[in-house]
Design a binder for these strands. Structure first.
Lengths: 351, 351
DNA sequence: AACACTTTCGTGTGCGCACACACAAAAATA
DNA sequence: TATTTTTGTGTGTGCGCACACGAAAGTGTT
């Protein structure tokens, strides 16, 4: 393994000079810089990141702004755990990570946590841009401070984020459509259940529905699509009544598609004959959803690999900071299809 | 961040003494050792792996013994790339990796490469135990030399391998059965195509077929199962003739299951009406197979995430060597279901 | 030619750990 | 008690790099 010292010796300069050109620190004559660069090229030299990390010692600081979670909605636990795992991995590489959690249904808390975050003077920010207007505001201050920012999970367009890490929601929805079609009989119907509060443009849920419907359109399938909007899924009594009523009125429905991570609520609400008869397809490998797979109430789940999303994000940002590695503009994680049998082999959150 | 020096100060001993108990190097009185351990526990101390790696500098050496690949059978390229990626990751952590490739159809080359390998005095060995008898022999010398060994991809039972990294082939086959059932009409039939040379007990292919058939048995489905054995799939003329003849004689067949990574050969051999009519399900995301997904000749592929298998193996072994972290006895990677739409979001081999 | 600057470069220190070596104290032996 | 052996502990050096400090060489001004 070749070291800076080796390069220096070959160029008849000191280690410090080589270091200066490696880090574009300036203060090197053009002649010697050229000489050093030639030798660098020749040996295809790259610094030893381990030694570099040791010497740097907590030079970088990443702040993450993501939704919190509770027992009612565990989705954001996985990305958080992924972030934690990555934090551990990069900790000794001179990179510190702090996570700020906001309430995904309260734009004020989003702004509030950002204010807290920005006071810590991060070298880069990872955020889940749930709210459009507030994000515009946030991005403005970040750009003013020249802090690079990365979007996680929500692929908001029109911003100069260094990268996006998440899923191709449209295609994920398209696949959901395909799986639905496989499971219900031809010329039968299906139901899409939406929760009002989730419908905003550019939103993953919106794109999933679009993809789902497009499958049937593009393949000229004349299954009929019904949509039921429910204000607040968590209100179980109301949800229960609405759904079962609706199904009573539309006995031709054979499948239910829930484009959010809340399909377990639907499974809970369905009366027994429906539960047996219907094919349920939903998103995300939360513990409750996995349980539904295992007890046969849900046929398929599509996972967006939330743990990996969190993990990869931090790794990408750390590489960007430490190794100056510019990431792909969009990093799409695999669209994972889960069914009863492979559910247990999914994402390892432990370790 | 707490360091060895901090621990030493608190225990009123020198760094060296702490170092000795950390590495069980001996030569420390019971009293001081107890004291140090208490403090270690109290702070939940763990050494900084970065500094450790720097100080150790190429202390460990991992040798990998895996099948080679060629254009005809690219499967083993992915694990190899995974190993390479991991090699890069652990390189600066004092761990070197060398890969030895053998011919998976020639047990002599297996032994021969092992002989080469063992001369390099590895600290640990990763191997794909394709051949039972030869593996017994190999393991014997490894155990004599007290070199820990790990199995990759092929889960041979009855050995004292430190760990296995691969897929649950039985369940993967079971899922293939389920997907097949979803795609063909009830009470129709399907065909399993086997290549003679692959049939050995304990083999992944064997287990996949078992799982596949069990799906139909356990769910009381009376689809009829046919099996066609072909000596050498690569002999395209013969394969072509045999398959199409067989299908002519059994028009009730609606699906074809190929429990190996060679389904692209079958797709190549099928005459056009069959290609359109039949549902093909196979294994592994090789480029040729992915092509078949994209051009609609194959309905599903099950990936065993070969890249990840290679990558994880090396990481697991490195952690074992560097951090003394005993791995799970079996590490099962996810059973990934691929179809046309999510094929492009799979395994990133670049970077 | 003497001076004040500026540019260019070498040296030294420390990051946290591993390990060889040195040396003291305690125990065993003569 | 003197001497050897064992046991226990401290010290020093280096891993490869980052960066501060200051020295040397170069440039311009009066």
């Amino acid at each position: 393994m070749i070291t800076i010292k080796d390069i220096a010796k070959e160029a008849n300069v000191s280690d410090g000079t080589v270091d200066r050109v490696l880090h574009n620190r300036g203060g090197v004559s053009k002649k010697t810089e050229a000489k050093i660069r030639t030798i660098l090229e020749k040996h295809n030299f790259s610094v030893n990141p381990v030694a570099s990390a040791l010497a740097l010692k907590n030079k970088f600081y990443i702040a993450a702004l993501i939704p919190g979670y509770n027992n009612d909605d565990l989705f954001w636990k996985s990305p958080y755990l992924g972030i934690l795992k990555a934090t551990e991995d990069v900790k000794n590489f001179g990179t510190q990570v702090d996570t700020f959690k906001y309430n995904q249904y309260d734009s004020a808390s989003y702004l509030e946590m950002f204010k807290k975050l920005i006071k810590t003077e991060p070298s880069a920010v990872l955020l889940v841009p749930t709210f459009l207007n507030e994000t515009t505001e946030i991005v403005k201050s970040l750009e003013q401070l020249e802090i690079p920012y990365f979007f996680l999970n929500v692929d908001l367009e029109g911003f100069k984020n260094t990268a996006f890490i998440g899923q191709d929601s449209y295609t994920a929805g398209y696949i959901a459509g395909k799986l639905m079609y496989l499971n219900i009989s031809k010329s039968s119907s299906f139901l899409i259940i939406q929760s009002r509060r989730n419908i905003t443009k550019n939103n993953a849920i919106f794109k999933r529905i679009e993809g789902f419907n497009d499958f049937f359109i593009k393949n000229n399938i004349n299954s009929q699509s019904f949509t039921l909007k429910i204000e607040n899924l968590t209100n179980l009594l109301e949800t229960k009544e609405k759904i079962n009523d609706y199904l009573k009125q539309h006995p031709e429905i054979e499948g239910v598609f829930v484009p959010s991570s809340r399909i377990y609520l639907i499974a809970d609400c369905l009366e027994d004959p429906y539960l047996k008869k219907l094919q349920l397809i939903g998103f995300d490998n939360t513990p409750q959803n996995i349980d539904c797979l295992l007890n046969d109430s849900v046929s398929f789940l599509i996972s967006q690999k939330p743990f990996d999303q969190g993990y990869e994000s931090i790794r990408i940002i750390a590489d960007y900071l430490i190794k100056n590695k510019t990431p792909n503009n969009k990093t799409f994680l695999p669209i994972e299809i889960l069914l009863k049998e492979n559910a247990i082999y999914v994402d390892r959150h432990e370790e």
